[in-house]
Nucleic acid binder design. Structure first.
Lengths: 228, 228, 228, 228
DNA sequence: AATGAATGAGCCTTCATTCAT
DNA sequence: CATGAATGAAGGCTCATTCAT
């Protein structure tokens, strides 16, 4: 554990006034690239996007290191922008959680899709290994979000469904090839991945990469078909 | 007095004052049983203890259901006491976390000790099963505490060490009997238990007991000796 | 998200957190005048500064009238700002004490410096008279701060040293001119000024200006060389 | 200054419910010794009085050392009694201030009365010297009380009047003998004594007895008749 | 009469969110 | 669009006071 004391948390500040819909907020407009139509607008967009990216990245780091409790002001300060700017891009703190989580999941979806094109029946294990190895940082964020009961399935059904679909495909293939125990469902699989994150995180930040891998391996071993 | 009210003063709220030694706080006095000497004294204690228990129990429930973010005022309200009473028993919020965590761990230690007296080489698995099955509530609290980087090893070294010792004993025996994979260390084992909690919790509160058991089983299977 | 509300979290209120470095707090940034570069920036600052001044002034009044015990909320209310605004300018209550005290001392330092440029060997007495006459309000604040053992010498060594230096200069000159008893040290002098404040204050707020002056005069007379 | 930070203060807790008259509270009954009529009652009284004395003494010490801000619980703890006992003797915190102040003043009144029986025209100075020398502890308490605008003249008119009367007598005699400047009134004199306390206190707790005496002397010198 | 547990108002501080510039 | 000052609702904690034992 990094610090003796505190960490992942969020304040549970009940917004009070501005709980409203976050619909036509700029950051909610689909980030299509097609909007790069006429010059001057695009120029500003570039700036704005750079800011958005920067805030997102800093937020990810700080959430991972200090938990969800870091203040938006702190994030703004470290990102070199004003608090107002953070709010322009992420109208509530929860929106920022969501963006961070989504960002990380999307990478996994990409990977799942890529692996889906191979023939390897054990592609599932490749994906799982990568997921589990994806580092303490990610694990920290996810673990914090999980503890905060921030449920991606509710908050961003699309992304979550995407991931589930990708994993399901790989799981089906593995089942077909007998590479995985027959009584394993996708839900259980996802839960176990979350568990792996937690386990690795619990082992401590100072834990060697090897030990993390070993923990992951043990869980993966549990997924193998049971010897009769 | 010049004015009817009060005058020059300041509250002397020393920021960080709560950090001071909490030694002679009632809840820190060793809970010796020798104090059960004469009736009236015991009677008074009983009331206080009842309150303490009640707060602890409510805190456990609320932490499990809503996370560590629940306010002490809320806990007090639900426990039917004033905020000051919570403070009397648990001088800081962290002390309350600690008490909740300790309370839960102590049960496990008891169980570990009990199992240590049997001859069963698979006693380890019995303990692990029980730990993992110990319910969503516990899992929720532990997961929340873990995510908050609340480190029991730092906060209550004694209890943590007790648990580790108990588990180590069982692990050694399992190793000797070849009931567990040879490359498993206690640290990994503890991490995996934490991971199991997270996994079960991730599966969702509405998950059936069976599914939880299945997830636990998968992790336990991973601990078995590898088939050569 | 599972539930509509929030989840596992804790607020991360670190007791004693306010003790952390207040370095890059706005009010700590050196008040350079160079920031008066371009209009819009200065405009914004003007608003903030107006607020700051207002809070400081109200605080001074209330501290003088009701003692250091007045709550920050009360000060905020009377200044027509929210508690957060007070905090923005004065991150802790002590910072506000300090600001009030510093504000008052700085005026004296100015005066001391001005008098230092004259040739009058009795300039010391002029300064002391002015200090003592500087009004019940100031006296009240200082007396309150002194009673609270708020030590300017520790809290703001620079300002305190400035004042001491100025007074020392004048005292030296007075010594040289034989205008003051030879056995008087700066420390004693400062203590006596504090005593004069207390005496005037003790005489009561409703005391006439004349009586205050008389009390001051008596103390000043004690500083004169002893008739042999 | 003893500690860098805080000190004399009181919390300004506005009692809310129990602001009522403190009349027929046991501690308000005149402490005549005649009530020692029948045995069993007298036995209890002795205990109670011992407790009262002890609390008073501890309160005096703590007020002097740490300011009026010390909590009643702390005082109770150090006095070896329960908080309830403190309240039995001093129903409000202010009552405790009053008792402490009164206790100290009464000693001075005794002294003044004793001196009033001598013929020494400079008896006034003897009294003043003693008052001023009466130690940092007393000064601390008085200064704290003064800063808190705790005005003995309002709170305990009798004792205050007693003291004033005694001092007036001595002042009159000194005036008659030409031992004191003719333009000095009792009110000024009392204010100056308060000022002397503050000055001595300001010089710091670590100040030598000699320096304290010197400061007192300077003030006393100011009281002497002006050389024409 | 003493104890000490309980109360609850209030304090200082934090921080998500809003809004004037 | 960005800035950063302002808001204000909590939150954790303290402590004078009350009351059951």
């Amino acid at each position: 554990m990094r610090r003796p004391g505190y960490g992942s948390e969020h304040t549970g500040r009940r917004p009070g006034y501005a709980r409203a819909d976050m619909s036509n907020h700029p950051s909610e407009r689909a980030p299509t690239k097609s909007s790069a139509a006429h010059g001057s607008d695009r120029e500003l967009r570039a700036d704005a996007r750079r800011n958005r990216e920067r805030v997102l990245q800093i937020a990810q780091q700080l959430f991972a290191r200090d938990g969800l409790g870091v203040s938006l002001d702190e994030i703004a300060r470290r990102a070199g922008v004003g608090p107002g700017t953070v709010h322009r891009h992420f109208p509530t703190k929860e929106a920022l959680y969501l963006a961070v989580a989504t960002d990380q999941i999307e990478q996994l979806v990409e990977e799942a899709k890529a692996l889906a094109t191979t023939d390897d029946p054990a592609a599932l294990f490749t994906l799982l290994s990568r997921m589990m190895a994806s580092g303490a940082e990610n694990a920290a964020v996810k673990s914090a979000l999980a503890a905060a009961e921030f449920d991606l399935r509710t908050a961003a059904p699309d992304v979550a469904a995407d991931l589930t679909r990708g994993v399901t495909d790989l799981l089906d293939r593995a089942h077909a090839a007998g590479a995985v125990r027959h009584d394993l469902t996708v839900e259980e699989l996802m839960a176990l991945v979350a568990g792996a994150f937690a386990a690795i995180r619990h082992a401590g930040a100072e834990t060697s990469h090897e030990r993390s891998a070993h923990i992951a391996q043990i869980i993966l071993d549990g997924l193998r078909p049971r010897p009769r």
